[in-house]
Design a protein around this nucleic acid. Structure first.
Length: 573
RNA sequence: GCGGUCGUAGUCUAGCGGUAGGACGCGGGCCUCCCGAGCCCGUUGCCCGGGUUCAAAUCCCGGCGGCCGCACCA
């Protein structure tokens, strides 16, 4: 186990779940420190991607009904039958392989695939035999309700909860694009074989933003903020660049300004969270790597002891999701976009003559009138026969020819005020667990002080789970009483504070260095004389002395910045 | 899922058929000390289940977990 993992477990950042029953891969518990850190990270994310955008946050169930994932494509995308060669261990998608080798379409079910393999004596490319076909569906299945119940799945991404509620959300924004909807929550993927502990989990935390835009306007009003930032990019042909986002857009490396904007903002966010710029890059998905819904996708990747790992995916999902939900639910999930000026259009329209249609077509009359009124491109539909116009329409699967006596064609001038569009969505999707882990790894540092190793977590101050430790220099009553007084003052002011009176002072400093606590307050002999304490800085180990009455103020300023303590008092010792 | 390898206190590690040892940590005490000081006392362990054996942490089988490689990661 790596030094950092050993520390994270021992000090209570995280550990494997279900340990006392032997544990299972792909699940972790966040301990007191890890949970605090992740909460802080989530709040920074809200600040960036909700508060400072035209965005809101919602919360939807982690269990979804089957219909949702049929529409989203996850059921299909997940229910593949796989076959594995006994010899070379290659795994194929059974239906694809059979189609390719035998040219037959098969329903992908285990029984049928097994039959086909047997009947045609289907072999692997290496001549090896196939093992029994197996099913793999990366969604966790469940039943909703008693008895047979209704099929459900644990969500593989939080995004669907947003698409499902699109109508209400669009309404909330008074149907005006662009707008974004965020969700922070758990998602689940029943990975075949999760490895790398924290990196590939079966239950994980996502922060996703679905940013809905007009399909023809993939810009962002604040693009200028990031346009001149130089960013490390790797495109889908593995070409590397260190260029500004503006240039990347102009040269067509990044498809449009909106993706570039979110790449810039994501980078800003990650660096603020403590990820090292030199260990961060953005990589474009190759054509065969993109998810079924994505048009273009860029991942933020960080360099860790596991190599480059994907921590954020920024995808242009186009109108895939909304279109699919329109198709499967029958709901209208479009947005009406008014033109600046209404457009006048002359066109031919059909006016059904209801009083004639009624008596002839009886119960079908209503449907016929409706159909006729809706017909566009009048000229295309008309069947000409001996100089007489007729229209052929279909009602309940029955073809009906309508003679010209039942309608009139008039040329009319219409005003068109706008159009209905299916918005496109650009999705920055953050893997919070991986980001949390990367922050910890990038912050982990080892010093050698007087031949002793000092382990220190150089977290940004604002993200540290324990902000301040109050330490009486000696474990004597008067020191401890004073220390507890200071603890109470700090806690009442909302600063996360711990008290520690055990062991030598040096040992205690090390303890708090290890978990990344930015400041230690020491109660010493002088405190008892003049009500001052020392503040020790984690990164420099330097100390200043301040009055207890000013302590909260100074600490709040220090904690909200990365400023040197020397600005707030004279260096001591 | 396949192959290799490993699993001993909170952590790291010794033992590899015959009473499970150490270091650090942690708790208490002495010391009263500004960067893992010292001393004393205490605390905590053979991943789980079967088998072989008089006797298993040790050998064998299976499971679970870690790591590495292959595959998978929509």
């Amino acid at each position: 186990m790596s030094k950092i993992m050993e520390m994270l477990i021992r000090r209570g950042f995280l550990w494997q779940s279900f340990e006392i029953y032997g544990g299972i891969a792909g699940f972790i518990d966040y301990g007191p420190l890890g949970n605090g850190l992740r909460r802080n990270l989530e709040n920074l994310w809200r600040d960036f991607f909700v508060i400072n955008e035209r965005c809101v946050e919602i919360d939807s169930p982690t269990v979804g009904i089957e219909e949702v994932f049929i529409a989203s494509g996850h059921v299909e995308g997940f229910s593949d039958i796989a076959i594995e060669c006994k010899e070379c261990k290659k795994v194929f998608r059974a239906d694809h392989y059979i189609k390719e080798k035998l040219g037959i379409d098969v329903d992908p079910s285990i029984g049928i695939v097994e039959e086909v393999i047997e009947e045609f004596n289907l072999r692997c490319e290496c001549e090896g035999e196939f093992d029994k076909p197996f099913h793999f569906n990366l969604m966790f299945e469940t039943k909703i309700g008693p008895g047979k119940g209704k099929n459900g799945y644990l969500r593989p991404e939080t995004a669907q909860g947003i698409f499902i509620s699109f109508k209400r959300l669009s309404n909330y924004f008074r149907d005006k694009l662009p707008f974004g909807v965020a969700q922070i929550g758990r998602a689940y993927r029943n990975e075949i074989s999760p490895r790398q502990g924290v990196i590939r989990l079966r239950e994980f935390n996502q922060a996703e933003l679905e940013y809905f835009v007009h399909p023809k306007d993939k810009t962002h009003p604040e693009f200028e903020r990031y346009a001149d930032e130089k960013v490390k990019l790797v495109d889908k042909f593995d070409r590397e660049y260190l260029i500004t986002l503006r240039e990347a857009v102009n040269r067509g490396i990044i498809a449009h300004e909106l993706l570039a904007y979110f790449i810039g903002k994501t980078r800003d966010f990650l660096i603020k969270a403590g990820i090292k710029d030199e260990k961060l890059r953005f990589r474009q998905h190759k054509d065969d790597e993109r998810a079924h819904y994505a048009v273009d996708c860029w991942d933020a990747e960080t360099l860790t002891s596991f190599g480059w790992i994907e921590i954020v995916g920024i995808a242009d999902r186009g109108d895939y999701d909304l279109s699919r939900h329109i198709q499967y639910s029958g709901e209208d999930l479009t947005v009406f976009i008014p033109y600046k000026e209404p457009v006048k259009v002359r066109r031919k329209r059909i006016f059904p003559n209801i009083s004639k249609i009624g008596p002839v077509f009886r119960e079908k009359a209503k449907m016929i009138v409706e159909k006729l009124s809706k017909l566009e491109n009048v000229d295309d539909i008309i069947v000409d026969e001996n100089g007489k116009n007729k229209i052929e329409i279909e009602v309940d699967g029955e073809k009906i020819v309508i003679d010209s006596e039942f309608y009139e064609i008039k040329e009319v001038e219409e005003e068109i005020h706008g159009e209905r569009v299916i918005p496109h969505v650009v999705e920055p999707s953050f893997g919070l667990d991986r980001i949390t882990y990367t922050i910890l790894e990038h912050a982990f540092d080892r010093d050698v002080v007087d031949g002793e190793e000092r382990r220190v977590l150089r977290l940004k101050r604002w993200i540290a789970p324990v902000k301040v430790a109050v330490l009486p220099l000696l474990s004597k009553d008067e020191f401890e009483r004073k220390a507890l007084e200071v603890v109470r003052i700090l806690k009442e002011s909302g600063i996360f504070t711990e008290y520690d009176n055990t062991g030598s002072i040096g040992r205690r400093y090390r303890r708090y260095d290890e978990i990344g606590t930015p400041f230690c307050i020491t109660i010493d002999h002088q405190t008892l004389e003049d009500d001052t304490v020392t503040i020790r800085d984690r990164d420099t180990t330097k100390q200043i002395r301040v009055k207890i009455s000013e302590l909260v103020d100074v600490l709040k300023k220090l904690l909200s910045t990365e400023e040197s303590i020397e600005k707030f008092g004279i260096l001591y010792s």
